[in-house]
């Protein structure tokens, strides 16, 4: 039974956007801090650190999750995806990202990585997601800039494009 002592750093390994990564963390280190400070992956943002704002939302083993409500040591061996993993190539945006750009669905961009990760998983699970489903999903995120309307428009547009493509 692995017991990791609180006063030492321990090795943590997992898969991030398809690549094996590792680093060291005290048990109390939040996954959001591990991603940003240990791995230097600063796409995942940190707002409230208690699960409310949604800025730190990533995907763990295929489902959306708050990175600020996980310990780094908890995700040993898991498969993680962050906003850095969305674009299919360095010079190409995903369908959802492109829709965000067209619809001005971001201003300061602070909330955007979390919202993209949530909507990406929603649209993968439910190609038929309608406005009500998108609004409900967005209830787990705070955006202080856009007023949400352009985000909903972008998500509906992306959903239509994805349906057309499949």
């Amino acid at each position: 039974m692995p017991r990791l002592t609180g006063d030492a750093r321990h090795r943590v390994r997992f898969t991030l956007n398809g690549a094996a990564v590792e680093g060291e963390a005290e048990p109390r280190m939040l996954l959001s801090d591990f991603l940003r400070h240990v791995l230097g992956m600063t796409g995942t943002h940190v707002g409230c650190e208690h699960g409310v704002c949604g800025a730190c939302t990533i995907e763990i083993d295929g489902v959306p999750a708050r990175a600020c409500l996980k310990l780094a040591v908890q995700v040993e061996g898991a498969r993680l995806r962050t906003v850095e993993g969305l674009a299919p190539a360095p010079d190409r945006l995903s369908v959802l990202q492109a829709a965000f750009r067209r619809h001005h669905a971001l201003q300061c961009g602070f909330c955007t990585p979390g919202i993209l990760m949530s909507l990406d998983s929603l649209l993968r699970e439910r190609r038929d997601a309608d406005e009500a489903a998108i609004r409900e999903h967005l209830s787990g995120h705070l955006c202080r800039c856009t007023g949400y309307a352009p985000i909903i428009a972008a998500a509906l547009d992306a959903a239509a494009t994805l349906r057309g493509a499949s």
Binding site: M1, P2, R3, L4, T5, G6, D7, E26, P27, R28, L30, D33, E49, H50, L71, V73, E76
Partner: peptide
Amino acid sequence: MKPARFDYVRAETLAEA
């Protein structure tokens, strides 16, 4: 807003927990 120190045990069986 960071947790204070604790040991972390990843229980593999109910008996361990």
